[in-house]
Amino acid sequence: MTAATTTGLDVRAEGLTVRFGDTTALDGVALSVPAGSITGLLGRNGSGKTTLLSAIASFRRPTEGRVLVDGEDPFENERLMEQICLVRESGDVLHDERLTTNLEYFATTRPTWDDALAERLLETFQLDAAKKVSQLSRGQRSAFGITMGLASRAPLTMLDEVHLGMDAPSRYAFYDALLEDYVAHPRTIVLSSHLISELDRLLEHVVVLDRGSVLLTSDADDLRARGATITGRTEDVDATVRTLDDVTVLSEHTLGSTKQVAVMGQGARLTPATTSAVRDAGLELGQVELQDLVVHLTGRKS
């Protein structure tokens, strides 16, 4: 099959609550995911990321509130279900069947499936298509899940912690493959992960969950603009940061006589007065990592 061109599906959650007995996994979640974006669903383990993705994919019905995909409720919606692909780390595969059998089965359920992309990804991740899924290592199973998710080219593709067990070269091969195919075939991609620093360069939109609630939704560049790195001689950096009463220090790194401090402003972005003070001191302003911002916003060290 050859994938059809798509710009993706938008997602909205309105008052979304999901309970498991006495446990509230999601509590009145309200958010939107723009169509055609790469969105990072970020937060610590147990923040509700997997539950949210399961509700969007209609694997789990909301206790209260609703999810809308392309303006419709996805639950038992045949038109939408073939356009939504959720790949979970646990794997939704036929474990006792060969990889080829799984791919053939998956292709029948996805009208946007691309065989050529699946073959390229198998080669990229050095996966033997004749093996059974049960014979793969954890990292190989993750790579196979990624292969199915990307080759589906579903208008809404969600990947939930799919990197687990993969070594660094394999993870970066995944990021490169995702970005390359996204540019050629735009769709809505949601990446759930706690490896925020590795995803930083990919993300256009960010949703941060904390303890089952939405902490923020933001354009990724707007979120980055709330902070900055300040780099220079240690004594100059320390002296300047002490004069800034409208920032919070997120992290500090020192190498020899050079120091870099990541800071976050109290408002939507750093004030002109703050940036002027830094530049007037002869210090370098740089882009802060999303990792530092998210760890600070969730209020707990990772």
Rank of each mutant, 00 (worst) to 15 (best):
D181F: 00
D181M: 07
Y182L: 04
V183W: 12
A184P: 06
A184Q: 14
H185L: 06
H185S: 08
P186L: 01
R187M: 05
R187N: 01
R187V: 00
T188N: 01
I189V: 13
L191G: 08
L191N: 01
S193K: 03
H194V: 00
L195I: 09
L195G: 06
I196E: 00
I196G: 00
I196R: 04
L199W: 01
R201V: 05
R201Q: 12
L203G: 00
H205I: 02
V206F: 01
V207Q: 02
V207E: 02
V207A: 03
L209C: 02
L209T: 05
L209V: 03
D210H: 13
G212C: 06
S213E: 14
V214T: 11
L215R: 15
L215Y: 11
L216S: 11
D221A: 15
D222V: 13
L223C: 00
R224N: 03
A225K: 09
A225R: 14
A225L: 05
R226T: 11
G227A: 05
G227K: 04
A228V: 08
A228L: 04
I230H: 08
I230M: 10
T231R: 14
T231E: 12
T231I: 10
G232P: 05
G232F: 08
G232T: 11
R233K: 14
R233V: 15
E235A: 15
V237P: 11
D238S: 15
T240F: 03
T240Q: 07
T240G: 09
R242M: 14
L244Q: 06
D246Y: 08
D246F: 07
V247S: 00
T248P: 10
V249D: 08
L250N: 03
L250S: 01
L250R: 00
S251P: 02
E252Y: 10
E252Q: 14
E252W: 04
H253Y: 11
T254M: 11
L255D: 15
G256M: 13
S257C: 11
S257K: 14
T258L: 15
T258I: 15
K259Y: 10
K259I: 10
K259S: 11
Q260K: 12
Q260I: 09
